[in-house]
Design a protein around this nucleic acid. Sequence first.
DNA 1: TTTGTAATTTAACAGCGTTAAGTTTCCTGC
DNA 2: GCAGGAAACTTAACGCTGTTAAATTACAAA
Lengths: 213, 213
Amino acid sequence: MGINERRERERKSVRKKILEAARELFVAEGYDAVTMRRIAEAIEYSPTAIYFHFKDKETLIRELCKEDSSSLAKAFNAIAKEPDAFERLRKIGRAYVEFGVRHPNSYRLMFMTQSKIKEDDYAEMGHGKQEEDGYAFLVATVIEAIDKGLLRQELMDPHLVAQAIWSAGHGVVALHLAKRDDPWVEWRSLTETAELIINSMINGLKREGFTHD
Amino acid sequence: MGINERRERERKSVRKKILEAARELFVAEGYDAVTMRRIAEAIEYSPTAIYFHFKDKETLIRELCKEDSSSLAKAFNAIAKEPDAFERLRKIGRAYVEFGVRHPNSYRLMFMTQSKIKEDDYAEMGHGKQEEDGYAFLVATVIEAIDKGLLRQELMDPHLVAQAIWSAGHGVVALHLAKRDDPWVEWRSLTETAELIINSMINGLKREGFTHD
DNA sequence: TTTGTAATTTAACAGCGTTAAGTTTCCTGC
DNA sequence: GCAGGAAACTTAACGCTGTTAAATTACAAA
């Protein structure tokens, strides 16, 4: 018994070592640029050793991604305290943008690529629970705004509105992550653009004549 | 001379054949899923034959992408006739969304991935010319809106406003292309969401009290 | 008919993620 | 203390990729 615990502890320590090395490399060079062989090299193991601890590269990356995404959930939970629905939307937007900047690789994986995750796995990922599901949190906030009569009368579908808001926020982050270094455009700062988008969207969705703070 | 022309014609025909086969495969299965070997197989040539006509896979894809993107430029040129600045913005948005739907692979390549294209190549791509440069066209429209006093007073930077509008439009397309099949979210239709985003953004950017059509 | 170049094929390389098989390590039960 | 055996790891290799080098074919020019 006691010895099994030791085994397990050691295994976990190696797992952690792999994750840390992988994280450092991925953060520095991105998902595609880092090979399994280089991760192995970094921890001075053979490449195949990784496969004892992780099913494949995809799984390894998802693990890191999961760590990151929990930081987004945390930020959202802190925001939940904000009483004003519009202000909450603004804070959601800012937190979302900050997440993209802080974890560009995870952001790309989560929101900019098609994932083959099956619906079955969703339950354990907190699907639908506001504390873990950012989209659910956004929808709930929109519902509140609708119920309080803050939005234009024709806006009755919370999913539609939430998706529009999400899209706007996503757009500014995604464009930044993909095109920030492209000199075709005289880029303005991400935060400035994000602020304008968030405010314009809220301003454009809110009930005509409704004056807010 | 006459024989050189014939040679050239034949070469161009093979080039075209490759491009057509590649396009069909790429459209059906996407950039990453299609290998050079499969393209070669489709035209019943050896894989290396392609490399006589195209430098590498990247170049081949860029060629297809260029063809697609000209359709966007065409759509924008048609829109240029629209006299009303806001209505022009709406049409730009719709055309942009339609481009994303019609050419998802090119869209992903152009707007959702980092490109290593150097600034030097931009001149021949029509950078800055409104007829070929969609961003320049958008900026020009924003400038017109500003000059005519249609936008809120504090909005004086056309690039900032253009980038906010672009981001909003991009967001809805990018999210759709990446997450459309993800059952985590009860997706609303792209066109409906796009329409809401475009209208909300314009509504949110326009001068307070300014009533439009 | 020879010659030279353009166009194509065959063979192969280096890199990738990954798997199979062999080896070390080290706890367990006698 | 030592045999057995699972756990953790390494070595070797597979199949796939984009791509290149070298050999081959096709075919107009002389």
